[in-house]
Structure formats: structure tokens, C-alpha cells
């Protein structure tokens, strides 16, 4: 094939691909990929190139979300005047209701902070939040991850807790300049320290990977827990702030002869439905961010 002039090659095309070239390419690029996999799994050296490449992939994710987005827009155009008016009235009454609640909350928060100040405790209950919009969902049903439209430019950091209007959603596991990836609490690789609202029993809630379910680990068969118990984040482990709703216990199975009971909970947050989430900036967290790096093993192994 090398003997043909350039023109001839163009005209008739080589009949066979050169087998040796193929072999070398397979060997070279295959080994390179394996090295990349190894390096990416064990270190974080490739994170820089990953976020550089998201400049290419973010438009793809946004494009993929377009049908959904335009469907929502079309729905708005075609909803009738009465529907919209009804919705506005509903929202207005809800707003008044929530305002009242917030005022009461504000009073309680300030009182709580004063009491904490008296006790000498540094923990404040005031958290800042940033609203983010969902732009993508991990297509693999085994991996419960979503992509949001806020990234490093908005000071999002790895390990940041994420809420929706009803409860804890998950945490940030990957930050790129304009988007970030959130691991949901229902993912198999995720667990969150919780406590039961009724009696402060401390437990660990792990995702099950299947649908909207959490599993409570190592619940001793004598533990005081029952269906309907509200679980709050306990703040242990220093990742999630204290007191946000995580889930409601919906199945308790004490098995005779087994050391641990089987307890399942349903997350409060609408993990598969919410289109807006809140990123929480806790004051202590922001300070901590400077000196704790995120460990790779925490994300992949957990």
C-alpha cells in the first residue's frame, strides 16, 4: 500500500486496512485507557482534564434536556386562564401560610441562637442556600445521580449538601465550572447519618439503589422504632447539617433470631420529581472547605 502514490490511494482506496497498524493502535490506546482507569480510580490527577472536557459535554447535556424543557413551556402556553388563575390563588394562599410559618421560625431561630449563645455553643442554625436547576439525570438506572446547572463559578464545592423543599436530596460529588453532579441519598453508594425525631435514636440510612428507598443499617432488634417515624439528619460525620428531614420509616421487620431488624424508609425529598434543588452553605462548612480536600475513595468506594 505504501507503494501507491497519494492520488492512487485516494482513487482506489487500499483494499485492506493494515493489520499491524490496527494491532498497534489497539495495544497503545487500550493500554492508555487502562492506565487512565487506574489513575482515575486511585488518584485525582485527572480531575482537571475532566472539568476541562465538561466544556464539551455540558452543551450535550443541555441539548438532551431540551425536549423536557420545551414540553414544560408548551404546557404553560396551553394551560387555560382559569387554570392559571387557580394556580396563582393557590400559590398566594400558600405564600401567606408559609410567611406566617417563617415569621414564627425566625423568632424561634433567634431564640434558639440566643439560648445556644448562653450555652456557649458555636453552632448557628442559619444556613444560606442557592437554588439550582436540574439539567440532567444519569441515564444508568443503577446510578442515582443528577446534574445541576451550578458549578465552581457559583462556589459549589464537593461534599456540599443538597436539599429540595421537602428534605435532603444528596450531596455534590463532582464540580465543574458550570455544572455539578449530585449523588442522591437513594444511591447504593450513599449513606447518611440520621436520628429518629421521636427519641433521638441514632442510625445510618443507606440508599438501596432501587427506586425511592432507604435502608437503615444495624438496627438492633430491641430498638424503639416504628412505622411513621420521621428521620432527621443528625449532623454526625460533619457532612450534612443537623435537623433536615431525610425520610419516613415505612417498614419495620423484626426478625426473630436475627441480631438486626430490617427497616426501610421513604425519602422526604421528591428525588425523582423535583426540578429545582437547594445547595446549602453552612458557615462552618465554608471555612472547612479550605482545609479539607475531598477524598476520592469517599466518592467511588462508599
Amino acid at each position: 500500500m505504501r507503494n501507491f502514490s497519494c492520488l492512487e490511494v485516494n482513487r482506489i482506496k487500499a483494499l485492506f486496512l493494515e493489520e499491524t497498524t490496527l494491532d498497534y493502535q489497539l495495544l497503545g490506546l487500550g493500554l492508555l485507557s487502562l492506565v487512565f482507569v487506574f489513575v482515575d480510580h486511585t488518584t485525582n490527577w485527572l480531575d482537571g482534564s475532566r472539568s476541562a472536557l465538561t466544556i464539551v459535554t455540558t452543551p450535550i447535556v443541555v441539548t438532551a434536556d431540551l425536549p423536557n424543557r420545551s414540553a414544560r413551556g408548551i404546557e404553560d402556553i396551553f394551560s387555560s386562564r382559569e387554570d392559571l388563575r387557580g394556580r396563582i390563588t393557590g400559590l398566594e394562599s400558600e405564600l401567606i401560610f408559609l410567611k406566617v410559618k417563617t415569621e414564627k421560625m425566625a423568632a424561634l431561630t433567634s431564640e434558639n441562637n440566643r439560648l445556644r449563645g448562653l450555652l456557649g455553643s458555636a453552632a448557628k442554625l442559619q444556613d444560606n442556600v442557592l437554588v439550582a436547576e436540574l439539567i440532567g439525570v444519569n441515564p444508568d438506572p443503577e446510578e442515582q445521580e443528577v446534574v445541576i446547572d451550578k458549578g465552581a463559578e457559583d462556589a459549589v464545592f464537593v461534599g456540599q449538601p443538597v436539599l429540595d423543599s421537602r428534605g435532603l436530596v444528596g450531596q455534590v460529588v463532582e464540580v465543574t465550572p458550570f455544572s455539578s453532579r449530585i449523588l442522591l441519598i437513594s444511591d447504593e453508594r450513599h449513606s447518611v447519618p440520621v436520628q429518629v425525631l421521636r427519641n433521638n435514636l441514632r442510625l445510618i440510612a443507606q440508599g438501596t439503589g432501587i427506586g425511592q428507598r432507604l435502608e437503615l443499617l444495624h438496627v438492633s432488634s430491641t430498638a424503639d422504632i416504628k412505622v411513621g417515624d420521621q428521620l432527621l439528619s443528625s449532623g454526625l460525620g460533619n457532612r450534612f447539617p443537623v435537623g433536615y428531614p431525610v425520610g419516613v420509616v415505612d417498614r419495620v421487620d423484626f426478625k426473630p433470631g436475627k441480631p438486626f431488624a430490617e427497616v426501610l424508609a421513604k425519602p422526604n425529598a421528591q428525588l425523582d420529581r423535583s426540578s429545582h434543588v437547594l445547595l446549602v452553605f453552612t458557615e462552618s462548612r465554608v471555612l472547612e472547605k479550605a482545609n479539607t480536600g475531598f477524598e476520592k475513595s469517599g466518592k467511588r468506594g462508599g
Binding site: L17, Q25, L29, G30, S33, V37, T54, T57, R181, R300
Partner: peptide, 28 residues
Amino acid sequence: GILTAWLAGIVVDVLLGSLIGQHALSYV
């Protein structure tokens, strides 16, 4: 050829958040 497949694989890895090189290897 293999090079195109490899490049596409790296982009898919970033897109899906898998380990970099995973799709690249299988595409190669």
C-alpha cells in the same frame, strides 16, 4: 477507526461521569 473510537470514549466517560478510560477501552 480505533483513534476516533477512543476519543469518543473519553468524551462519553466525562459525559456519564464514569471512570475516565472505561468507555474508551470498550470502544477501542
